[in-house]
Write a protein that binds this DNA or RNA. Structure first.
Lengths: 105, 105
DNA sequence: AGGTTATATAACGAATTTGTTATATGAAAG
DNA sequence: CTTTCATATAACAAATTCGTTATATAACCT
C-alpha cells in the first residue's frame, strides 16, 4: 500500500517521456549512462539530471566500472512492481539517433 | 500497449497528491465537485482546474444534475485499468476538513 | 604530470505548474 | 427578474521543471 505523497512523487518522476524511455531501455538490463547520451537529442547534463531524478526517487541503482556508470532498475524499491508493470505495457521506442545497446565495456 | 507520449502525459496528471486523492475518492463512486471543495484546503477554482486536467486526460466523465456536477472514473479510458490498479494500491486518505461523502443531491 | 573520456554540478532562462483573487456562467429559488 | 449557489474562466505571482552552456570531478592512458 502506497501513501499518497510518496506515490504522487514517483508518478511525477515517471511522468516524463525521456525518463520513461530511459526506464524502458533498462527493462532489458543494465545501461551505461553514455548510451542514453547517444539515444536522446538532449545534452549530456540534461541526461545526467534525469538519471539523478530517477535515482533520487529510488528507482535506479548504479554500478561504477572504470570510467563508466551503469544504471539498472532497483528491484528492491517498493515501487519496482509498479514500474515493471508500467514498462510491460509500454511500447518500445525506436531511437532517433544511433543508440548502442550498451557502451564498449 | 501505451505509447510513451500518451503514458507519460497521463502519469504526469496522476503525479499530483490532490488529483490522486480525488481519484481515490471516486474509486468508491461518483463525487460531486462541491464535495472536493469541502475536502481540500485549496480554493474552489484550484479544485476546478484539477478536475479539468483529469477530464482532459480522459480519466473522468461528468454528469450534470441540476446545479451540481458529478464526476466519476471513465471506465472506457484506455488508462482505466492502470488507474484502478494504482488506486487499489493507494492508502485511503483521511480528509483534513469536513468532507461529506457527496453533496445534498 | 598532462590529455582524453565519462559523468556531475552550477548558473541561468524559458516554459509550465499551481496556487491566489476577481469575474463570468448556468441553474434554482424566491 | 433578481438573488443565490455551484462551477468555470481570466489574470496574475511564486515555485518548479527542463533545457542550455560552462565548469568541475573522476578515471584512464600516454
Amino acid at each position: 500500500m502506497y501513501a499518497v505523497e510518496e506515490l504522487s512523487k514517483v508518478l511525477k518522476v515517471l511522468g516524463d517521456p525521456t525518463r520513461l524511455t530511459m526506464l524502458k531501455q533498462m527493462e532489458a538490463g543494465e545501461q551505461c549512462a553514455c548510451s542514453f547520451v547517444d539515444c536522446f537529442d538532449i545534452s549530456q547534463p540534461a541526461i545526467s539530471r534525469h538519471l539523478k531524478m530517477l535515482r533520487q526517487a529510488g528507482l535506479l541503482l548504479e554500478r561504477r566500472d572504470k570510467q563508466w556508470i551503469h544504471y539498472r532498475l532497483n528491484e528492491t524499491s517498493p515501487f519496482y512492481p509498479l514500474v515493471t508493470d508500467l514498462l510491460a505495457n509500454l511500447e518500445t521506442v525506436e531511437p532517433s539517433c544511433d543508440c548502442e545497446p550498451d557502451c564498449a565495456m
